[in-house]
């Protein structure tokens, strides 16, 4: 939940002078959670986000979304991570394509960041107008050292996880 609504904007809204009615940060559904390797992977996007500082290459502005991945431990995560623990030090590559727009293709890496709704991975991605999009995440294991002795060791990391969703943009939910 991220509200970014300055008093001056409220005042403008009250006067009916605001250029855009949707300035507050809002989060939108992209697809169902995917459970893989004991992790819950959730895609979503937000609008109205401002950042400090910008991730290098981060696309911002009216036609860009704040693309997120929420990755938390599930019930029986094998590395002793309690349910709902945020997974740090992941490398998450994203790819977005649009149905019927062969020239539109976006790819990059999500960056770890923090907001009022917790730690997450995200980046800014310019969209190609309304339509049907395909999002793919490829998640590489956390860059974390591991104990391997008999008493305190945890298993080796998994192979990179791939998860994909088809979604409508802009989202019709709310």
């Amino acid at each position: 939940m991220r509200f970014v609504l300055a008093p001056s904007v409220l005042a403008l809204s009250a006067l009916g002078l605001a250029a855009s009615p949707a300035l507050a940060a809002q989060e939108f559904y992209v697809g169902e959670p995917v459970m893989k390797e004991g992790l819950q992977i959730v895609p979503n996007y937000l609008t109205g986000i401002q950042m400090s500082a910008h991730v290098p290459g981060m696309e911002m502005g009216k036609d860009a979304i704040h693309l997120e991945a929420d990755v938390h431990a599930g019930k029986d995560e094998a590395h002793s991570l309690a349910e709902d623990t945020w997974i740090p030090y992941l490398t998450i590559k994203y790819q977005i394509t649009k149905k019927g727009s062969p020239l539109y293709h976006k790819s990059g890496v999500l960056a770890a960041m923090v907001a009022k709704d917790g730690l997450h991975y995200a980046n800014g991605v310019r969209m190609d107008g309304p339509g049907t999009y395909r999002l793919t995440y490829v998640i590489s294991p956390p860059k974390l050292y591991r104990h391997v002795d008999k008493a305190s060791g945890v298993p080796d990391w998994w192979k990179p996880i791939k998860a994909a969703w088809t979604f409508q943009y802009p989202s019709k939910s709310k």
């Binding site: 939940m1 989060e27 559904y29 697809g31 169902e32 959670p33 819950q40 959730v42 979503n44 929420d70 349910e83 709902d84 009022k116 709704d117 917790g118 939910s173």
Partner: peptide, 26 residues
């Protein structure tokens, strides 16, 4: 039928629950 994100800044909780599933919020 679709996932929802149980979210609360006040409780410092964010938990996504898939459609037709249940989840534990501590």
């Amino acid at each position: 039928p679709l996932a929802e994100e149980f979210d609360s800044t006040a409780l410092k909780v964010e938990k996504v629950i898939a459609g037709k599933q249940s989840g534990t919020v501590r």
